[in-house]
């Protein structure tokens, strides 16, 4: 998926700065101020979005430590605190890879598959090519259905009702062990 927040935010900031803001009537102070605030919010997204997951994981990690400290300090009589800390620790245990790592691993795997497929189309025999075609098309069907569902709100689909809702297509987050 190439349409990711990074490039969307970058292009929105550019449009706001270079086209929209210069065209806003300077006597409309509310419009000028709000347009500037839109740019400000977008700039925060652009800088902080890549760190958001780490930020939340770091917060949870320290909160779990703090819960232990609180208990040691004598404030841990409430069983709900211990229970919440336990749940938090289990979630933290599962939250190991950064989203960027996930994306990178998927890209690297796709690239390796693509290289193999190109080799088959360049050098492989007809039977191998035919089998690889089938697998590749099937793989594309599943992924593209998700890509189309992800972007349904853009309005490109001639028959949007035929595209399932994205949340019904995505594998659920693995349950905690």
């Amino acid at each position: 998926m190439q349409l990711r927040p990074e490039i969307q935010i970058q292009s929105m900031i550019k449009a706001m700065m270079e086209v929209v803001l210069p065209a806003v009537d300077p006597s409309n102070e509310l419009a000028v101020q709000q347009a500037q605030l839109v740019v400000g919010h977008l700039s925060i997204f652009a800088q902080r979005l890549p760190l958001q997951y780490r930020y939340d994981r770091d917060a949870l990690d320290r909160l779990i430590a703090l819960a232990a400290d609180l208990k040691a300090a004598g404030a841990g009589g409430d069983s709900s605190l211990e229970q919440a800390a336990g749940i938090g620790a289990k979630v933290l245990e599962r939250a190991k890879a950064d989203p960027a790592e996930l994306v990178q691993a998927a890209r690297a795997l796709t690239a390796a598959m693509d290289t193999s497929i190109r080799k088959v189309f360049a050098e492989g025999d007809e039977a191998t090519q035919s089998r690889v075609e089938k697998v590749t098309l099937a793989m594309g069907r599943e992924q593209l259905l998700r890509d189309r569902a992800w972007l349904i709100m853009q309005g490109w689909e001639p028959d949007p009702a035929s595209v399932p809702a994205i949340d019904t297509l995505l594998a659920p987050t693995p349950a905690q062990g």
């Binding site: 292009s11 929105m12 594309g140 069907r141 189309r148 972007l151 853009q154 490109w156 689909e157």
Partner: peptide, 23 residues
Amino acid sequence: DVLLTWLLGVGYMVMDDLRALIE
């Protein structure tokens, strides 16, 4: 750039069309 970014989104429908046509 903001329009080109928007157009990125149509690529997946078109690629699925490409897949279906070859299939």
